[in-house]
């Protein structure tokens, strides 16, 4: 059974179409990267899946059921977002105590060890937590909940590099022991590139890409060499980006690069290099923007 299935999912806020005819399926036990620029619709999509928002057209199911006001389906999800607010009277230990009862798979030992890792004072009032500490609190809940479907929406705001690395390490280690479906929405694509197994790329409400990250990385290459040679080679590809400096051209190409193509490139004197996931995403989104 699919964890999440969306078919023709559309969400409008007045005149604005936040999600436009989005169709995809999330299968179990995989780490997804939900990528896209600001305002692409990432948060809206996660809000719809987790029942925080409704009023959609098209079809959306969570563990085979409609998510809105669905206790059974929602108790299997945790949604950690940067904008989460806490009642001002709460202390860290209150939040933890409540979360322990609300998430069926909660692991208290893991939660306590994460609080120690992030140096979160248990008796500190949530109002007095720094931005980074609030993010750490969210990350702790998101990991310790061990929900079959876990969303992290930009969970690292204010977290320093060491704490972010700690988050990635704990996530990966715990995921290996307790496989589940994780959706990471982030701007720091390169930081999580090794974690992400599958990429969903949103751009202005449309799903631009839904592919395994290895495939995506193999599909986008940067070719550099003499202008004539690169342009000849590029004829068989979609040119995402092209920049020329004197007689030399560097172009980002999308298509399949099999051995024959690689040999052909070599013969033409072209240097073929893979691009990072972040670059691939940037090239794909800017190409679409330019095309408009």
């Amino acid at each position: 059974m699919s964890v999440v299935a969306a078919a023709g999912l559309t969400k409008r806020f007045g005149e604005v179409t936040a999600l436009d005819d989005v169709t995809f399926t999330l299968t179990g036990n995989k780490i997804y990267g939900l990528l896209g620029r600001n305002g692409a619709g990432k948060t809206t999509l996660m809000q719809l899946i987790t029942g925080q928002n409704g009023g959609i057209s098209g079809d959306l199911t969570l563990f085979g059921e409609r998510p809105y006001e669905n206790e059974r389906a929602l108790s299997r999800v945790v949604f950690i977002k940067e904008s989460q607010t806490y009642p001002t009277a709460y202390q860290v230990r209150h939040v933890m105590s409540l979360a322990r009862r609300l998430f069926p798979n909660w692991d208290e030992d893991f939660a306590q060890s994460l609080l120690d890792d992030f140096d979160l004072p248990r008796k500190r009032n949530v109002r007095k937590l720094s931005r980074g500490m609030l993010s750490a609190l969210g990350v702790t809940i998101g990991l310790a909940a061990r929900a079959p479907l876990t969303f992290f929406d930009e969970p690292y705001l204010g977290l320093d590099a060491v704490a972010r690395q700690l988050f990635y390490d704990r996530l990966l280690a715990d995921y290996a022991e307790n496989p589940r479906t994780v959706v990471l929405s982030t701007h720091l694509i390169d930081e999580v590139a090794d974690l992400i197994e599958h990429v969903l790329l949103l751009d202005r409400g449309k799903l631009l890409l839904d592919a395994p990250s290895d495939e995506l990385r193999g599909e986008v290459m940067e070719a550099s060499g003499p202008a004539a040679a690169v342009d000849e080679f590029a004829a068989g590809y979609r040119v995402l980006h092209r920049e020329q400096l004197g007689g030399a051209v560097r172009a980002s190409l999308r298509g399949s690069f099999d051995d024959a193509e690689r040999t052909r490139a070599k013969k033409l004197g072209i240097d073929l290099a893979p691009v990072s996931l972040q670059q691939a995403v940037v090239r794909l989104t800017t190409e679409r923007t330019n095309a408009r």
Binding site: T50, G51, Q52, E69, N70, E71, L74, S75, V77, V78, F79, K81, Q84, T85, Y86, P87, L98, A99, L102, F103
Partner: peptide, 11 residues
């Protein structure tokens, strides 16, 4: 808003 964020239904 906290309850909703923790996956609790409005009802």
């Amino acid at each position: 808003p906290f309850a909703l964020g923790m996956g609790v239904t409005r009802r």
